[in-house]
Amino acid sequence: MKADPAVQRRLLDLAEADAELNRVEHRRRTLPELAEIGQAERDVRAKRDELVVAETAYRDLDREVRRLENEVEQVRARGQRDRELMAAGGSAKQLEDLEHELQTLARRQGILEDEQLEVMEQREALETNVTKSREAVDAAEQRLAEVQSRRDEALADLEAAEVRRKGERDMIVKALPDDLAALYERIRAQRGVAAGLLQGARCGACRIEIDRTALNEVREAAADDVVRCEECGAILVRTGGNR
């Protein structure tokens, strides 16, 4: 295959565009924000789980407080009824029984109120835990949102670079002869890097020095001959200085 040396040199621009597109894709896959997002998402899940535990414990104690409040109210109502019955009078036996029941109710009320106070203090502590857990969830979600925003910005920059480079690449390919462009694309599909500058005896695509015999063949080839590296198969782009 033959192609004007100036046209062949355009392959270097094409190879650079492809290298940049590869770097963009690699960068997209390895953004540090991706790992940060994974960790931030795990933190959010952990904080939410902690909040669920705290809220569940708080609700359990809150129900216990309400149960005790109801029991205390029932005891007070029973005591009020007994006092009203005593005020209405009755037999000595009835009054004695009422007095005994009032004493029992007073002791029961005291026990219930002590228990109620203790549970309320525990509920207050758990309410503080719930508040702190909610704040921790909010903070974790905020960190996640910040990292996601940075990722989106980085992806937008990469997308813009990719679009720009693809546009440049399309222009280069359209300016190449069809057979040369097809050869380049076939090599790129098979080997990755399809063209490189011949620098002394070194192939610019694979960075391997070409042996003397092959190098002499390359140098003896006509300027418009399309020659390839025997090591990697890439098109060797030559300049006047390496012929």
Results as ranks from 00 to 15, higher is better:
7 V>W: 01
10 R>I: 09
12 L>D: 03
15 A>T: 06
17 A>W: 07
24 V>A: 12
25 E>Y: 11
29 R>C: 04
34 L>P: 06
34 L>C: 06
35 A>I: 04
63 R>W: 09
64 E>D: 07
64 E>S: 11
68 L>S: 10
70 N>Q: 13
71 E>W: 08
81 R>N: 13
82 D>G: 14
85 L>K: 10
90 G>W: 03
95 L>E: 01
95 L>Y: 03
97 D>L: 10
98 L>F: 05
99 E>S: 10
99 E>G: 15
101 E>V: 00
108 R>Q: 05
112 L>C: 07
116 Q>E: 11
117 L>S: 12
118 E>Q: 14
121 E>A: 12
126 L>A: 12
128 T>S: 15
129 N>Y: 13
129 N>P: 10
131 T>S: 10
134 R>H: 07
135 E>H: 12
138 D>S: 15
142 Q>S: 13
143 R>G: 01
152 D>W: 03
152 D>G: 04
156 A>I: 01
156 A>Q: 11
161 A>I: 09
164 R>F: 07
166 K>C: 10
167 G>N: 08
170 D>A: 13
177 P>L: 00
177 P>T: 01
177 P>C: 02
179 D>I: 00
180 L>P: 10
196 G>A: 02
208 I>C: 07
214 A>C: 05
219 R>H: 05
222 A>V: 02
224 D>C: 05
229 C>M: 00
230 E>V: 15
